[in-house]
Design a binder for these strands. Structure first.
Lengths: 356, 356
DNA sequence: CGATAGACTGCAAACGATTGCAGAGACGTT
DNA sequence: AACGTCTCTGCAATCGTTTGCAGTCTATCG
């Protein structure tokens, strides 16, 4: 069907081996034949068969990215960044959707390795540690966003403790003392870490932790709404809510709309991870940005490094953290001098009181 | 490294060919050896090497899906549906992002074909018709959502004329006579077809078409905002806006929020294609659903059909339409008996003041 | 001028599977 | 007993590359 190396060789009246060497540029052929062959190959429209090549070399120029889903905006941008980076290097990215389902993850994993992918970036479910570990002997693997504690794989993580700390501190600096937190499952790294950042900021500010203000769980928008209601129904409801789980955001917004709670006048709202519509929303929603682009880029860097350093890519470092940053938009505002009967409790004093 | 067929054959003391036949279940081996070999293969953890197999058979059990981007919610659900369907059939889906860029599309296309994919579902940019046509001789191809006029490829399309007609008629039935339309580029099929549906509904209702109410172009949220402003600044602004291009929706919402135009009281809003947050938005946004799931499923059906019918999958039909349907939520409301000079100019007057 | 290195080239064996062809038995028929 | 048929198995070629090894040719040096 298509033009093979043999055809090129015949047309050029050389052996297949010479043709191969000339076209792959091993420097073992004379300048002249090399040029002649590249020309002929071009004329004939020859394109090497990656399958045959792969069979011989054990490589495929394929790199896989395995994520949970595509609805998460962070995964979208990561996928696009990674694809662009790899493409520039001549790799084809294979994007797979694992659905956060361990069994499917396991299946996909073996399929991929069987296809002799050259590298893998995976957001692990955390339930297939053993398999991942075994696979990492056959192909370079980098974990992204989540850690699999059962492995010692190189992992690129968002700095969730820092991000949550930053966000909470921002709210505290605005004078908020009762800050509701809606956070992800506590059996995930990010769930735990975000909670810890929240706790740290509170402690640092000398604010006592109030358990009724914290809701953790596996969120969908509905649960987000439920939690928001619970928070707002409290005798002393929070003056700010930190939604540290992006799945929950929609639900929270719904509830505030239903109850005609004005943001940010009646309630400050801070979310984690950006969504394309956040800055178009009215009011534009302030967020803690987990740095998806940076995460993706770093993951690619690490993967390439491991792919180069055949086998012994062990640099000692196992975990990389990508800084989070606060993006202030319009959904958070300073609280009006709350309990103090005094005057002029503006920002400076609010910030000060926060430290105590 | 890994267990090969040869290893299995040796362990079973048979030839490689027998092993192959037994394991692929050709029925050319005795029941006994077949069972024995499957057992041994399992014990040894043998997994066939798809690359070697592919070299011989010319197949890869890989099917590619090439889309423009992942931010479009429709593409997300299509990708997930297609992946699930294919997976169940033992195919691995290769998801590629073309960025709506003809050159990148072309590149990706050749890479994919070189990798001997077994099938391809593509949302064509429309600029690589010749290449697609040529490729379709080597691998079954189905176009999705967009047609490439330069080819006669089988194409699965949303019924955009019908969808736009349905939406417009809905607004008309609610009493709207001045309906703004924000629609995509007129050099895309969907752009043209949605406009035509709008026009048809208007004509059928005996409403004269007003050119100032229609904006077509290549949209990003910013442009959506600009168009919304132009529409609302009109001397006689529309009482409803049909945003038939999902990229523009965010911009339109932004403008209505800025101007304190209440939806649906002051302005009815209808959008095309669903977004996960539409039903959580306040008010929940009514839409014309293009039937992404159905589109994806049909595309898979057609592709599988072509993959089965080696070569002559030509059924005569070249174009499939998937019905659109209206999903009424809260962003459209009947217009108050419009031209009557009666009292109760409350809300509409607010909208009016907004324009001035 | 002969030896020798050096630069190219070709032969053939891989890589791991599939598959046409033919041989080896087992069995039934005449 | 001879023959044909049928079922199962193995040999070897093949898919399109890469690559170790050995051979050819030219040029250089003593």
């Amino acid at each position: 069907m298509s033009v093979t190396l043999k055809d090129v060789a015949q047309a050029a009246r050389v052996s297949v081996s010479t043709a191969s060497r000339a076209l792959t540029g091993t420097g073992l052929t004379s300048e002249r034949t090399q040029q002649r062959l590249t020309r002929i190959a071009r004329e004939l429209g020859y394109r090497p068969n990656p399958i045959a090549r792969g069979l011989k070399t054990g490589q495929s120029r394929l790199v896989a990215l395995l994520v949970h889903n595509l609805t998460n905006a962070s995964f979208q941008v990561m996928a696009e960044v990674i694809q662009a980076r790899l493409k520039a290097l001549g790799y084809q990215m294979l994007l797979c959707i694992g659905g956060d389902d361990p069994e499917q993850e396991s299946d996909t994993l073996t399929t991929l390795v069987d296809h002799r992918i050259d590298g893998l970036i995976v957001v692990p479910t955390g339930k297939n540690g053993a398999q991942l570990k075994a696979l990492s002997k056959e192909v370079p693997i980098v974990c992204l966003v989540r850690r699999d504690d059962a492995t010692d794989l190189e992992t690129v993580l968002a700095d969730d403790p820092q991000g949550a700390y930053l966000g909470t501190r921002h709210l505290i600096e605005l004078g908020h003392k009762r800050i509701g937190l809606i956070v992800g499952r506590q059996d995930t790294t990010s769930g735990r870490e975000r909670l810890s950042g929240y706790v740290r900021a509170l402690r640092e500010a000398g604010i006592a932790m109030d358990g009724t203000l914290v809701h953790a769980g596996h969120f969908v928008p509905e649960t987000g709404a439920t939690c928001a209601r619970k928070l707002l129904d409290l005798l002393r409801p929070p003056s700010a809510i930190f939604v540290a789980n992006h799945e929950a955001t929609l639900g929270v917004l719904r509830v505030t709309a239903e109850r005609n709670i004005a943001i940010p006048d009646d309630l400050s709202l801070l979310c984690y991870e950006d969504m394309p519509w956040f800055e178009w929303h009215r009011p534009a929603i302030s967020i803690v940005d987990n740095g998806a682009r940076d995460l993706a880029n770093l993951a690619v860097d690490r993967l390439l490094h491991r792919m180069d350093a055949k086998g012994n890519g062990n640099d000692g470092v196992r975990e990389y953290r990508v800084g989070a940053r606060l993006i202030k938009r319009d959904s958070c505002r300073p609280i009006e001098s709350a309990s103090k009967p005094k005057s002029s409790k503006s920002k400076s004093s609010a910030a000060k009181s926060a430290k105590v």
